[in-house]
Design a protein around this nucleic acid. Structure first.
Length: 692
RNA sequence: GGCGAGGUAGCUCAGCUGGUUAGAGCGUCGGAUUCAUAACCCGGAGGCCGAGGGUUCAAGUCCCUCUCUCGCUACCA
């Protein structure tokens, strides 16, 4: 059912909207922006009509929370990061046709209209529930913003969704004496209405469209992930929520509510396209509504369901829109063996890289392309970065260009010589050169950017080999005419490289074109011309003096980066995690209600069919009882038998996965997030001993 | 626990519908060369294709079991 567009009239390329709670790092680049930019540049070079759009994603609860924590407004948070991100993309050479923001008027309007359209078409389900409302903060309280007394066990610190004491699942409205954690006031109960997108209605459509239609052209990781979701059964998903930061719900009953980010963010692509079209005096609609438009979303694997299931369902619901033809999602990039983490500062930040390695954008682009996590998670190491630069960019590409340019200047004062007769090798070499556009295209169009980059390098290799085989520096002593032909051929290769390198290494391409002085019309300009044009760089054309395309990267520079990461690691170890603020005061009586005892684990086994649960038999002195504890990811059953632990024994029993748990083992967490027993270390403390 | 993706030379990866001695780049070792950022060019070594079973004349490629990594999901902090 998904007909492939072999010759689209235009392309709409989107790159995942960066969330403005932090700057851009190499993971974002390798996964999304570098491949998307290569693709967009490639398409433009081939004369295609391309809209490459992106923008900052600035709504959602994470930004709202971050602002609250830092005591600033959400607007201040987003302005800060939008500024950093926007600037770094621009300096890095990501050629968005438009980079918008979801906080802009145009997006609010686009997303609102979209919502209203679906609303009017009856594409949403409405559901009214009673929820707690904070009069002072003037907002409905999400479950975790409410505490109160648990109706089941009397625990006074139960959260709106669950009581930590007895483990019961609660409704916030059932809490006795509820209190808002935002203002501390007593909330009132109000009816609130929310809208849901019934994804289940689109199940058949999605099955047909993805499982049948895109079985062979979508990447396995993307297809598999979609299949998993669809097979699991799709459920209605809330489109609106009670929050004050976001796009207001534009229909009756929507006061104090906003659209969920998952709904508004992808519409940001559309808003961004509109903004671009307005500025350029174009019509945006064909880019989203014409069947001859090829829509491609570049994203990371975290975004697969949103772009392959949910957003298409929304577009389908609307009715006027085209669907993505492909969603080439990448996996994740790690850094020196550890997951990238914005909060732990474990990253190579783009804006810092740009400062520390000025004018070396292409080195990072190349390394990230070569190491792109296309089929599985991959690791970025500084050592590899150095090696890629020194052994490939410098030694293969940079060196080839340098030898050609130096020789041309040395023998002919920079004038491209007139060839005489081409030898068999010359012809074959030129023939191979002409094949490269096709070879590289084929890789790019299958989203195999790693492979495409390798092929580009192979062209430089071809050049090096040609020179090594023909040895103009020797031939010059016997046959000057022959050398003219050799250098002419070598210059054609160099010129081909200047064009074909553009999507991958735009700054280098630019530099190379300057060295070869090919700003004029006489030389090649487009991708296809590298194959079709008889002469890429004509005789008598004057080129400039040699200039190094890449410089070597010294060990000391790499060491400096490694030291920087090491310092981050140390800082993370020393720095306390964000600590919870102190809870409300309790009385001594409250405390004495807790009966905590020293106990010993006498048996332990895994709870079947559960990942985190261990079933323990604990000797509490009074008895030996069963306690189910969610610690299986930190301990094996064998290693904890005989362990002394602290047990809360008068906790109301609760059945977990059918096993009655009578009490709770007290745990804490170390810096790595591993659970640790709160245990009486001293010898001679017996089971059943009270803790006070 | 369920589901998905991945596990191929020291490193990063390619191997389509099963078919000759499993490929590439980088690294490594040796050779050759000097136009070039000691770079280029040529050659060699290096692989129980995660483990174990099975199907087949033939399996990295298909089936089953197990295992490790990553993710989603359930249950759980």
């Amino acid at each position: 059912m998904a007909e492939k567009l072999t010759h689209p009239e235009r392309y709409t390329i989107t790159a995942a909207l960066p969330y403005t709670n932090g700057p851009i790092h190499i993971g974002h680049l390798a996964g999304v922006y570098v491949p998307a930019d290569i693709y967009a540049r490639y398409l433009r070079l081939n004369g295609n009509d391309v809209a490459f759009v992106c923008g900052s994603d600035e709504h959602g609860v994470a930004i709202s929370m971050k602002a609250k924590k830092e005591g600033i407004t959400p607007k201040e948070v987003i302005d800060k990061y939008d500024g950093i991100i926007r600037k770094s993309f621009q300096e890095f050479g990501i050629t968005f046709d438009n980079y918008s923001r979801t906080s802009r008027e145009i997006h609010h309007k686009t997303a609102s209209d979209f919502f209203v359209k679906l609303y009017e078409q009856g594409d949403f389900i409405e559901e009214t529930t009673a929820q707690l409302y904070d009069e002072e903060a003037k907002q409905f309280l999400a479950d975790r913003f409410v505490v109160g007394t648990c109706p089941k066990c009397g625990h006074e610190e139960a959260y709106g969704d669950q009581c930590e004491n007895c483990g019961s699942t609660l409704n916030a409205t059932d809490l006795i004496n509820p209190k808002s954690t935002i203002t501390g006031t007593v909330p009132t109960t109000k009816e609130t209405k929310h809208w849901f997108l019934p994804l289940d209605r689109y199940e058949d459509f999605l099955k047909e469209w993805i499982l049948v239609g895109h079985k062979s052209d979508w990447k396995p990781n993307v297809y598999g992930q979609c299949k998993s979701w669809i097979d699991d059964g799709l459920k209605p998903r809330a489109v609106t929520r009670d929050l004050d930061w976001g796009i207001p719900v534009p229909v009756e009953g929507g006061e104090g509510k906003v659209l969920y980010v998952w709904f508004d963010a992808p519409i940001g692509y559309i808003s961004s396209t509109k903004e671009w079209a307005e500025r350029e005096g174009k019509d945006w609609e064909p880019y989203w509504k014409d069947e001859n438009t090829k829509l491609v979303h570049f994203i990371g694997k975290d975004n697969i369901v949103f772009h392959c299931i949910i957003f298409p369902a929304i577009l389908k619901a609307h009715g006027d829109y085209i669907l993505p033809e492909n969603v080439p999602a990448n996996e994740f990039l790690n850094l020196e063996g550890n997951k990238l983490s914005t909060s732990k500062n474990w990253a190579v930040w783009l804006h810092e890289y740009l400062e520390e390695f000025p004018d070396m954008q292409d080195v990072l682009r190349y390394t990230l392309t070569a190491n792109a996590p296309e089929t599985k998670d991959n690791d970025f190491t500084w050592k590899d970065f150095q090696a890629r630069n020194n052994n490939e960019l410098v030694a293969i590409l940079g060196n080839f260009i340098n030898r050609v340019v130096v020789l041309t200047n040395k023998y002919y004062e920079g004038i491209v010589p007139t060839p005489s007769e081409f030898s068999q090798v010359d012809k074959e070499t030129l023939e191979q050169l002409r094949k490269f556009p096709e070879i590289i295209s084929s890789s790019i169009e299958r989203y195999r950017f790693r492979e495409a980059g390798q092929e580009l390098m192979n062209l430089a290799r071809l050049g090096n080999k040609y020179l090594a085989d023909e040895e103009p520096w020797k031939v010059i002593k016997q046959d000057e005419e022959r050398v003219k032909t050799i250098m002419f051929v070598a210059l054609q290769i160099a010129t081909g490289l200047s064009v074909l390198s553009e999507p991958f290494l735009p700054f280098t391409s630019e530099k190379l074109k300057n060295i070869l002085a090919i700003n004029s019309e006489e030389a090649v300009s487009s991708w296809a011309e590298v194959s079709t044009k008889e002469t890429l760089l004509p005789a008598d054309h004057k080129i400039n003096k040699a200039e190094l395309l890449f410089r070597k990267i010294e060990d000391s520079e790499i060491q400096a980066q490694l030291d920087k990461l090491e310092a981050t690691k140390k800082a993370n170890e020393n720095e306390n995690k964000e600590l919870m603020p102190q809870k409300d005061t309790i009385t001594f009586d409250d405390f004495t209600k807790l009966d905590m005892r020293v106990g010993t684990i006498v048996e332990a086994e895994k709870m079947p069919k559960a990942k985190k649960l261990l079933v323990l038999k604990v000797d509490t002195g009074l008895d030996t009882r069963t306690i189910v504890s969610g610690i299986a990811e930190s301990f094996t059953p064998e290693e904890i038998v005989g362990k002394k632990v602290t047990v809360l024994i008068n906790l109301a029993p609760r059945a977990l996965r059918g096993v009655e748990s009578e009490g709770m083992i007290l745990m804490t967490e170390n810096a790595d997030g591993k659970l640790v027993f709160v245990n009486p270390d001293e010898d001679g403390v017996g089971n059943g001993e009270g803790i006070s």
